[in-house]
Design a protein around this nucleic acid. Structure first.
Lengths: 194, 194
DNA sequence: GACATCCTGGACCGATCATTCCAAGATGGA
DNA sequence: TCCATCTTGGAATGATCGGTCCAGGATGTC
């Protein structure tokens, strides 16, 4: 059972990511990770380093994967800005509806745990939140909004997006999640119409 | 050093609540709790039961304390509905600005940790979220909004309120937090004007 | 076919976890 | 004053934690 790697690194990272996402850093043990990935301790440590390194890598993976989807949702230059915003939220709604993946959001969960994360992990969380903020603000600017309006709406939209993670974990149904988004979309529509 | 209780139960509960609030259930050890409260293990266990029981009690305490303030903010029947909403958010903003108390929100943090909480704790979290939703919806109805609008706005407002906890933990400044709230207040103003 | 290299299984480590227990001491009522 | 009652300090328990280590075996190269 040795010689060359016996497992798929990408699949193992996905499994670890889902484990952290579902239960958080503190409540995920090395044994949990070996069970989830199918790897044993030696392989886990030799391939990914210690628990915190693996966690940071999973965070990066999460940010890259869904960041790409958010970018795509906002990128369609032909679509009206309001549709772009709708698509943006749809990324999160689809993720929540995806049965292969936990509720909530790894970034939001990690943000709430910042006081007990390592400095490296904290840095990644801050980075993730700022990237999202920048992404949304840039899209609003492209849609023609002045800077102050774009700043205000961007932070509101990212915050509301995070709130979907909280509410989905708290048991909100799809209709409630849509209500949360709709009020924000209405507000955006009002600003765009002005 | 014995005979009758040597400590103030209320103060001990406050200290434990702040400990859980700051670091979460999983990352709060019994030793942390003894340090924070000044009690030793025996006193802690004999007064409050096990760790989970103490946590549930702290959750209830948190919900009662801030729930009272939310109620007060929404209760002023003379104030225009928009001012009531502003006061509602101000409860959270003041809590975040309070240096004696951690950032974030014990309920939001616990909601994100639902998959690893005990059934009793999960029940309390659901209860807390529902109480808040009911509170806001009732206030909107009192302000004259029709049922569907009140439902939609209530879930949006409570979600945005939760997002303040996430964003404060993620390092957002006061101006950004105000932006988050302002967009929602504008949306509410639009609906109230209709 | 032999060897250096690398991966894997699982034992092992000290630290820390939540919880229990008991002896010692302080209390208040009789 | 004495005793039943309750609190307190701290030791002890068994489980689990993250992390290390090494022997054994598979691999690819020569």
């Amino acid at each position: 059972m040795a010689g060359r790697k016996q497992f798929d690194v990408e699949a193992a990272l996905d499994a670890a990511m889902i484990q952290f996402w579902s239960r958080g850093y503190a409540e995920t043990s090395i044994d949990d990770l070996t069970r989830a990935t199918g790897l044993n301790r030696s392989s886990l440590y030799s391939s990914f380093g210690d628990k915190n390194s693996l966690f940071v890598r999973c965070l990066q993976r999460y940010v890259a994967r869904y960041g790409k989807r958010f970018d795509e949702a906002l990128a369609n230059a032909d679509a009206p800005p309001l549709d772009a915003a709708r698509s943006f939220f749809a990324v999160t709604m689809d993720r929540i509806a995806d049965p292969d993946v936990p509720d909530g959001c790894l970034v939001v969960q990690s943000a709430m745990a910042i006081p007990v994360l390592t400095p490296k992990a904290v840095e990644r969380v801050h980075e993730a939140v700022n990237i999202q903020l920048t992404r949304v603000r840039a899209a609003l600017r492209r849609a023609g909004l002045p800077e102050t309006a774009a700043d205000e709406l961007a932070v509101h939209i990212t915050a509301v997006n995070h709130s979907l993670a909280v509410m989905s974990r708290a048991g909100a149904n799809e209709s409630q999640l849509h209500s949360i988004v709709n009020v924000t979309l209405d507000a955006l529509a009002t600003v765009l119409a002005a």
